[in-house]
Nucleic acid binder design. Structure first.
Lengths: 141, 141
DNA sequence: CTATTATTGATAATCATTATCAGTTTCCTA
DNA sequence: TAGGAAACTGATAATGATTATCAATAATAG
């Protein structure tokens, strides 16, 4: 939580009411993957006049200083989640039935990364998604 | 190559001039990841009047019978590539410098998948991307 | 307190993709 | 082989998410 404030200060980023509201929304929804539209509606509960342009701008800004993580889950729109510490090695499981996204921690990819780096690449990040049926949807198929 | 024709027949899929052109484009560009727009322009070299709606329709149809593979690389648009045999276990390395996408074969994910399945999930597919600097871009940074 | 600068919301613009629809082609069957 | 049902096409309009524009407002440094 501290480290978020540090990141904000480090990037001479003016903390306004709307930005605080958006940050609050993201912190209230730790672990969830919200679309810009979802953030807009939730933020309007705290600040009714907030506009969608502000939401997009703020989310992108927060992603650029690594307070948020911005990903596209093959559905044609971006989703945002709060960057936790230890967030580096986390993967997503997307349920093909209900669409829910859950996370798993793991660190098995280092072997693969070493393989790639031995070919001269410098790896910055990775992104691993599993498409699956969750226990419930599997049962109801 | 045969298996493509089989897939087409199996899905009572009418093979027209435009579809042949699009398939040709994809086969000429084996291993590349083309956007719909790129396919359109390349297909127009073979058939000048082909329309973009046809390209989208055909690409999606080919993806649905697993002749093509449709993915989104975090840039807001879909890309298509020919499904090779043994395509199942292949991952993408996206260069953050030049944007080139290369592939690697591997099979280390089965361990992870077993872990997830032991929790009751049924895994259908996965998608692993590495964001990196390729040897050349790394050198010129 | 005031000038500079960043931020905001409304709106229009953009970009990729999808839907619509009338005209055309293909295929099946009589 | 003709004729009709069904699939396919291209042009165009519509959609949905995101980005750009711009005048008005708010925050900050001096």
């Amino acid at each position: 939580m501290n480290s978020i404030k540090e990141k904000l200060k480090d990037s001479n980023y003016r903390i306004t009411g709307q930005r605080a509201a958006i940050l609050e929304v993201m912190m209230d929804n730790r672990g969830k993957h919200l679309s810009a539209e979802e953030v807009l509606y939730k933020a309007r509960e705290k600040m009714p006049n907030i506009g969608m342009a502000t939401v997009y701008r703020t989310l992108d800004k927060l992603a650029s200083i690594e307070v948020l993580y911005k990903t596209m889950f093959d559905e044609g729109r971006y989703r945002y989640e709060l960057c936790d510490e230890g967030m580096h090695q986390h993967h997503h499981i997307i349920c093909l039935g209900c669409g829910n996204i859950t996370e798993m921690e793991d660190d098995l990819l280092t072997i693969l990364e070493q393989k790639i780096e031995s070919k001269g690449y410098e790896i910055i990040d990775h992104d691993l998604k599993f498409y699956a049926y969750c226990p419930e949807c599997r049962y109801n198929k």
